[in-house]
């Protein structure tokens, strides 16, 4: 019986950690929808957001102000990234240019964070819930912090599905990604839509940074890159560009990680995730729920 409960706890933990990954995957999806670009600075964005909040808090701003300032800053960084690393390079025949350039922006943020705040991990205060806040559900005690992440992850997925399927702006975004020329003939400002998608993606990184940092308890400049690859695994597992896929992919990854950690070794957790990435890309690159694209000549 104890064993069963242990497993349940692992699965629950996995689902919650997984919703963090799916938050990152959503961030990838938004820019992927409009430009087929995956922002290699997304992880550092997230890290930088945590760091910014920490800084604004330490200056003495209340939470709400710190969060608003952080969101504002990351939006601007998102716009800069789009202008500098994406717009001039996205039309070139190989993707190496924008991959390297977005990665460069990410590393710059990482280096900047190291310069300002040092390479060591900094303690991050609890947000809304303490790490000791638990509620018992089904006989297992669930961390409220994790539940908050889970709820936000679900909420964002719902909002994204709604926006994409029901609002004119979602339709415009889909239109721009499907055929930018046709979209502009229809009067859509394709360039602005792309810029907005990068802002939204950056904001999502901001939300993720705000929710993940309290769970980790501390943040270091290099934690962004690592977790970004995990978020990418989630996105790929669910099929690049799918909101539902991002959520399911993230949770699947989280659960597998926690089960591996619980029954085999915690040190193998991330290794397994990377192995999944390599496997899924090699065997079913369109993801578990994706549709295979037709190659055009």
């Amino acid at each position: 019986m104890i064993d069963f409960q242990f497993m349940l706890e692992l699965i629950f933990m996995g689902i919650c950690v997984g919703s963090v990954y799916s938050l990152i995957a959503h961030g990838f999806n938004i820019t992927f929808w409009t430009t087929k670009v995956v922002n290699f600075a997304h992880g550092p964005f997230l890290m930088f957001c945590s760091m910014l909040i920490l800084m604004f808090l330490s200056i003495g701003f209340p939470w709400i102000v710190a969060i608003l300032l952080e969101m504002f800053s990351i939006s601007i960084i998102g716009v800069i990234l789009e202008r500098v690393s994406v717009r001039p390079l996205v039309k070139s025949p190989t993707s190496m240019g924008w991959i390297v350039a977005t990665l460069g922006v990410g590393l710059f943020l990482q280096a900047l964070a190291t310069k300002i705040w040092g390479a060591q991990a900094l303690a991050f205060p609890a947000f809304i819930f303490e790490s000791t806040d638990y509620v018992p559900i089904l006989g297992i005690s669930m961390s409220l912090q994790y539940l908050l992440v889970l709820g936000t992850g679900l909420g964002i997925m719902l909002i994204m599905e709604l926006v994409m399927k029901k609002t004119i702006w979602g339709k415009a975004m889909k239109a721009v990604s499907f055929d930018p020329d046709l979209a502009s003939v229809m009067g859509i400002k394709s360039k602005s839509v792309v810029t907005i998608s990068f802002i939204l993606s950056a904001l999502l990184a901001g939300v993720a940074g705000l929710l993940i940092a309290p769970i980790y308890g501390n943040v270091a400049p290099d934690f962004g890159m690592n977790i970004m690859v995990l978020g990418f695994v989630a996105a790929v597992l669910g099929g690049m560009g799918s909101s539902k896929g991002a959520l399911i992919g993230g949770m699947t990854l989280g659960v597998i990680e926690k089960l591996v950690g619980g029954y085999i070794s915690t040190s193998a957790e991330h290794g397994v995730a990377f192995a999944i990435l390599i496997l899924i890309l090699a065997i079913k690159p369109e993801g578990l729920f994706g549709i295979k694209a037709v190659q055009k000549v």
Partner: peptide, 15 residues
Amino acid sequence: FQLMIYSLLLVISFL
């Protein structure tokens, strides 16, 4: 500033 310079090189080199 090694890290910063490297990353800036990455950003600008392709441009």
